[in-house]
Design a binder for these strands. Structure first.
Lengths: 353, 353
DNA sequence: CACGTTCATCAAAACGTTTTGACGAATTGG
DNA sequence: CCAATTCGTCAAAACGTTTTGATGAACGTG
């Protein structure tokens, strides 16, 4: 590896002159700078980030803690976040927590010892997070993505609004018996989506003599949950051609669940959407390839990534400026993005109406 | 941040003693070591990897250059690679090259200046790769994943064998007019899969009076390519109910293309598999959720990741041991994994047979 | 022309580690 | 009981940068 010393001797100047010429931190005469740059180009010099980081106390790297890259929503978010970070000169260290608290703690250690400037954190789980708390205590800037956590800066979407849009669509089509397939029951996103759905259904049918029936099942953000639960319901007589008062629509808390449900419905030869409508959440690319194509709520992954990175870098800058201040109780900004319902083939008017 | 000095003074020993106590590099008496460990625990000391890297010339970090995380095959691979790397104490720096040569070069710079110990490289594109060459010249260990590149260590699957298995399945079911939807024409994976398919078809029908007709289209590893090409073919009269001698099966070079094709076939109301069989490649999780579920060739992502990391770390160790040797012409080991055909609903006997 | 400025450059310290040569103290062997 | 060895520890150098106080040369000013 060629170092700054090599450049210095090649250009016949001191090490500090090279540093100044490259950083612009102090004025350097034009001819000298030219000689330095020529030497840099000739020797293919590349500053060692480790050494830079050691003295500057800043590494321009971010830790990305994501529960499960196999979930396309997370991989889409990871991609968008990495692109945004790179545009701003930050590198991303990828960490697959697999929803495992121990791994999370482990990764946090690694990231801290690697001196990352900030953390992008996807909870993906509902347990009040020890690793997150530890990070916050270490005074390292953290932005939580996708979930809202009190007193921690975060970026997420209007899950209640998304649920409401689904409810309004379904209510307008006469659906009032609905099966909701949630993820983990304690997850705020799941609860919020359900809340929006419920409130819009009740207010739509309020004053009419139609009763809203909302059947709830909780599990995990996985296709297998949707698949198995639909089959379970059929076995229990809640769903299927023999069922009386079967739900006329299924709302899944995310697209993966919906995809699993779709498969099960197919196996049960329940026609979607004629006999049962189906709605997902996330707006995965795949949802437009299924048959029927899936009605879903589109998450603006690019925007989320954009504001998450922006928020995080802001906080990093602040914490750099005030390195030795008292840890003043700072506000925890939270950015909420709107979502939009994408209506596709999987939704139709409630049968018998 | 608490440093090794803090530990030293807290334990009442010298800095080097702390270092030795922690690394085990030199014997330290039991009582002293205990005092050191107690201080470490009490102060929450975490060695600074930057400083460690600076002196040890090794960072225990790998660069992962991946073309497109939105492609689930790549995100699955990224996940598996990260998990394997983490198990071996390595961190992964994620880089989304987006198939853009300039971004690739850019990332290579970043990774080198971050002193990564090695590179995991997914070509994803066919251009003889400048960035890769540059990396190799820099003497940094590289393992190419998913494509075979001459003289560069790599891990990939038996694409020819995969193609052959598809061909054998289809030939056995009487398919001899087949549409092949490739990715980029110059991609070795595409060519290999095609080669396997072609050879098995020819040898199956060799000696019979049935002619093999293989229709080829090339594009990109994207769902949109499959979707549009099927529609194009229909418009050209090659596909559809009006077509004479329409292919009875479509083989896509990967699952994304197959999924796009499936959607288009549906829109054209061509029954899969009754009128047209469909086969993909990769074994994405989604392929079992489609209707009909997709016959595909399963890639062993975990195994690929495992051997890629192993190969890379081997090379890292070698290059560390021989740091100042002549750059001896080393062999470029290549690991090939077998693939297995997963037969699902999307394939049936050729119509009219 | 002497004086204070500005300008360009240099030398040295610092960042947090690991590594290694050195040095007393304790232990062993004859 | 003395020499030789081992043991435990320390101090200092090194890694590749940035930062900063110092220094000398050129310059404008009165």
């Amino acid at each position: 590896m060629t170092t700054i010393k090599d450049i210095a001797s090649a250009a016949g100047v001191s090490v500090s002159t090279v540093s100044h010429a490259l950083s612009g931190n102090r004025p350097i005469s034009e001819p000298t700078r030219a000689r330095v740059l020529a030497a840099v180009a000739a020797l293919g010099y590349r500053p060692n980030k480790l050494a830079q980081g050691l003295v500057s106390k800043t590494t321009r790297s971010l830790g990305l803690l994501v529960p499960d890259l196999a979930n396309p929503f997370f991989s889409a978010m990871a991609e968008a976040l990495e692109v945004q970070a790179h545009e701003r000169g930050y590198s991303v260290i990828l960490c697959n927590t697999n929803l495992d608290a121990e791994r999370e703690a482990d990764y946090l250690d690694v990231l801290l010892s690697r001196q990352v400037d900030g953390l992008l954190y996807f909870p993906g789980t509902s347990v009040p997070n020890r690793a997150l708390q530890a990070a916050l205590e270490k005074q390292i800037p953290v932005v939580v993505v996708d979930e809202q956590i009190a007193h921690v800066p975060g970026v997420f979407v209007d899950n209640v609004g998304g649920g409401r849009q689904i409810g309004e669509l379904l209510a307008g089509l006469g659906h009032h018996r609905i099966l909701f397939l949630g993820g983990a029951e304690a997850l705020p996103t799941v609860q919020d989506r359900l809340r929006g759905l419920r409130s819009s259904l009740y207010s739509a049918f309020n004053g009419t003599d139609t009763a809203v029936e909302l059947l709830l099942r909780f599990g995990a953000y996985r296709a297998s949950f949707g698949y198995e639960t639909v089959h379970d319901c059929a076995r229990e007589g809640l769903l299927g051609h023999a069922a009386v008062d079967a739900p006329t629509a299924i709302v899944a808390a995310n697209d993966l669940i919906a995809l699993g449900a779709l498969r099960a419905l197919r196996e049960l030869s329940i026609q979607v959407p004629q006999e049962c409508s189906l709605v997902g959440f996330d707006g995965l690319e795949f949802t437009m390839l299924t048959t029927p194509s899936l009605t879903t709520v589109q998450q603006p992954t690019g925007l989320i990534a954009n504001s998450a990175i922006e928020l995080l870098i802001d906080r990093i800058d602040v914490s750099l400026d005030h390195r030795d201040d008292y840890p003043a109780a700072r506000l925890a900004p939270q950015v909420v993005h709107p979502v939009s319902l994408v209506v596709r083939e999987s939704v139709a008017a409630a049968p018998g109406r």
